[in-house]
């Protein structure tokens, strides 16, 4: 939601940019990889063996639906991993 209308009044934070499948995506410092993706309007990023799209389901690290590769390392839960400026995320290298 727009920060100025948010009742929680989140503090100022620095923008970060991560590279998702080669394209830059902007997020905020302190967000998880899933938070950055969803903040940019993406709901799904992984594809199952049967070709079904998946994104966040449980949001707390239990279901493993949200897996991505971070800087070449596969099987990282996007909802648990804090995004770092410059991280390279691939949604295509999953087993």
């Amino acid at each position: 939601m727009e920060t100025h209308r948010d009742p929680v009044r989140p503090g100022e934070t620095s923008p970060i940019t991560i590279i998702v499948d080669g394209a830059p995506v902007r997020g905020l410092d302190g967000q998880t990889v899933a938070g950055v993706l969803m903040g940019a309007g993406r709901l799904a990023w992984r594809t199952t063996r049967n070709g079904r799209p998946r994104g966040v389901f449980c949001g707390i690290g239990v279901c493993h639906d949200c897996l991505v590769a971070v800087n070449g390392l596969p099987d990282v839960r996007a909802c648990q991993r804090r995004a770092a400026d410059g991280d390279s995320i691939s949604t295509e290298e999953q087993a």
């Binding site: 989140p10 938070g35 389901f57 449980c58 949001g59 707390i60 279901c63």
Partner: peptide, 14 residues
Amino acid sequence: FTAGAAQALAKSER
């Protein structure tokens, strides 16, 4: 989503 996912994304990501 699970209800908890909505809660987690609201509380820690806004």
